[in-house]
Design a protein around this nucleic acid. Structure first.
Lengths: 188, 188
DNA sequence: GTCTATAGCCAGATAGAC
DNA sequence: GTCTATCTGGCTATAGAC
């Protein structure tokens, strides 16, 4: 293992810790000391890997983006029909109901927080554009000319349900909505 | 005008300023100095009306709650059938599309931010429970035994669409979804 | 009740030894 | 590349004159 491997490992640990802390506490309430401690890295060393706190936040956003793309690719590989794929994506997003009920959707709550800032859209828009575009393509493959509207409806329904489940601290709400969405997709 | 009237006026100005600043910047990024300046009140004087910043946040939440109740009461008075009322509530919530596209739904983004904190649910749950309960009652009045599920779907759809419209900075997205929801309600 | 000045704290960022 | 010590600024909250 080379030095750059070690460096990459530390950087990766910092980003992973940042993802978790930001999900649990939000961007503003998460300090660099929090992230450094969670990653087992001394505070001062953080600045060797990231110039500013904002750089870490950008890395978190990009990590979520990569994970979203990976998840959609895996679903596309594992399911043959567009309907199965759409049900799989909602089920996959809704998977960790306890975590969503406690801290909200990781990407949704991140978008909500960063959207207050002037540079929000440039950073976060892709986080929601990627699943919406993907779902639109699936609906269109089912022969629907209003695929984009249906995609917006699907993702909005997931994000809204995650907010309700989080605010009510009710994981069952997310589960029930996942079942109802599956029935809706089957009816299309 | 008595002294307590003046005091109430000042307090009301502070709360109104806090509502706006919190909507635009979020809770964490809004300082007491921001609120005081927007209300035209010296910083030190804020503490005569509110012991802590958290007390102001609580006042903001209660203001939103009062406004939600007032809005629902007005809709109930102005529309005869449950279907008309449900369409009116979604239309009312979606009204200021430009503001939503820039800063998100005032109550939704507030819930998302406060939900990260341990005391979140106790404070914000009513903000979403009130419209959900109200919508459930309307759907049940239409003879639907699954009124609660439909109410969750309706509010989730609004909140999720607001998040998408905000992230994409696209007011038109909110407008289009309002029309689609109206059609959906008509079909029930 | 009102307002100025400031205390106290904490977070982001940096300097510089190793 | 790593880490300790520290600087700097801004924010909540308070003290105390008026």
């Amino acid at each position: 293992m080379t030095n750059s491997d070690l460096a990459a490992g530390k950087r990766a640990r910092l980003v992973a810790a940042a993802c978790q802390m930001v999900h649990e506490q939000g961007v503003e309430n998460t300090t660099l000391a929090d992230i450094a401690q969670a990653a087992g890295v001394p505070l001062g060393n953080v600045y060797y890997y990231f110039k500013t706190k904002n750089d870490i936040v950008r890395a978190v956003v990009e990590t979520h983006l990569d994970e979203a793309n990976a998840m959609l690719a895996a679903i596309e590989a594992g399911h043959a029909t567009p309907g199965e794929r759409l049900k799989a994506v909602f089920a996959g997003l809704s998977e960790q109901t306890e975590l969503i009920a406690r801290y909200g959707c990781p990407t949704g709550s991140l978008c909500a927080e960063l959207d207050k800032r002037a540079d929000g859209p440039g950073i976060t828009a892709d986080l929601l554009r990627v699943p919406v575009d993907w779902a639109a393509a699936q609906f269109e493959a089912m022969g629907r000319s209003d695929g984009r509207d249906l995609a917006v409806e699907l993702i909005a329904r997931y994000q809204g349900t995650a907010l309700l489940a989080n605010t009510f601290r009710d994981p069952g709400l997310m589960e029930r909505e996942a079942a109802r969405v599956a029935a809706w997709i089957d009816s299309i």
